[in-house]
Amino acid sequence: MNAPGGLTHSPLSVELAPGKDGLRKAGCMTGFTIAHLTDAHLPLHGGFSARELLGKRALSALNWARSRRALHLRTIADRLRADVMAHRPDHVAMTGDAVNFGLPREFGGAAEWLAGFGPGEQVSFVPGNHEALVAGVETERDARFAPFIASDRGAGWPWVRRRGPVALIGVSTAIATPLLYAKGAAGLAQIDGLRAHLSATRGLCRIVLIHHPPTAMSKPRKALRDRKAVAAAIAEAGADLVLHGHNHKSQLSWIDAGAIRIPVLGAPSASTPPGTGHEPAEWRLITISAEGRGHRIEILRRAVTATGEFADRGRFSLPSAS
């Protein structure tokens, strides 16, 4: 299905049949491994002061009390972390919304939680809209998450981190928005930086980490404002995979780049229990190995079950975009 701007997109079904949307059934291989998780929404706020409940936070606190606190459980997030660690990935990547209200104490708690996966050089993070629920928190946020956003080249966004055969490029789409909106934006400077990082790391398996998908997978009030420009930069410079969060769903979409398609993969929340009517918590073990002139990308899905434990939900591989 063709989308505006030359993008193609399709939902990722629970059962991935061989050949569906260019996917292949995966076998067992060894290679560099990355655990991808997203949208943990860790309940770390510990109550609010009257000043903290001004503006958008007040509505978010009401939504949390009414429904969201049943959708995001710390016990599930902690079990997911234990399951990730049992698989001993080479790297862990989280694509935003570690917190709920953008409070400085939440940033500190989320950073401690991420540190449970390993030292900063083995864990990468990009913020989501809940890390920017109100304006003016960027400096505090980035200071708390500093070990997980440290770039190999200078400071600021976007960052680039070379790990083994992989180049991870992190883009922040976290911006403050009005009530009832959860949009994101990268901005021209980040888009130029993204293009430069992707161009400078050709030959490596280039993986973009971003919270809002750069394809037409979100509702308008939650979409990435400059998604077409972000997608165009990725298509121009090339990439092997884009990992995102935000929608709390298993999603696969594509960025058309001439004769190839670049996969854009989203995951459910890392803390949702089963039986809520929403996709239960899931993380992915991504294995990157050499294949011809490009890279083979295989993905193992691990999801929470009715017993509260994590189990395999299926494997698939993506066609090389190199």
Rank of each mutant, 00 (worst) to 15 (best):
L209Y: 06
R284C: 09
S172L: 07
A303Y: 13
H248S: 11
G292F: 05
P213I: 08
G116F: 05
T139E: 13
F310P: 00
R202E: 12
V166A: 10
A259K: 14
L194C: 08
R302A: 09
T215S: 04
P4R: 09
G96V: 03
H45W: 01
R227M: 09
P4N: 01
A35M: 03
N129Q: 04
R57K: 01
R225I: 15
L23T: 15
D97M: 01
R284E: 00
R81V: 07
E282V: 00
P220M: 12
G292Q: 13
R261W: 04
K228N: 14
P119K: 15
H211E: 09
P280S: 10
P280F: 02
G31Q: 11
T38M: 07
H212F: 05
I288T: 15
C205P: 00
G203R: 11
P165R: 13
F148T: 14
L179K: 14
G47R: 12
I76L: 03
A259T: 14
S49M: 04
A267Y: 07
G308A: 08
V160K: 04
V160P: 05
S10D: 04
H130W: 01
E309Q: 15
S317N: 00
I207Q: 03
A281D: 02
P89W: 11
A70Y: 15
Q251Y: 00
I297W: 08
D90I: 08
S10E: 01
L53I: 00
I297D: 11
G238V: 10
L42G: 03
M94A: 15
L265P: 06
L243E: 08
L44T: 07
L53A: 08
A231E: 11
P274E: 04
H197C: 12
Q122E: 13
L62K: 13
R74I: 04
G193K: 10
R284H: 12
T307F: 02
E140G: 01
I34D: 06
V14G: 12
A143Q: 13
A176K: 12
L114P: 06
P274N: 02
V134A: 11
G154E: 11
G275S: 07
A231F: 12
V304F: 02
T8K: 04
H295K: 04
G314Y: 09
V14Y: 01
W64E: 10
V230E: 08
G55E: 13
L243R: 14
H41T: 02
A58T: 07
W64V: 00
D90K: 09
P268H: 10
R296A: 15
I175D: 06
L194I: 07
R79I: 00
R66C: 05
G203L: 04
H130V: 00
R163E: 12
N129M: 08
P158W: 09
L73T: 03
K249E: 12
G292L: 09
R88P: 01
G118V: 12
S10C: 09
F145W: 11
E236Q: 13
G308Y: 06
A223M: 04
R66F: 00
W283G: 05
R221I: 01
T173A: 14
P280M: 05
V160A: 12
H295W: 15
T305E: 14
L103D: 09
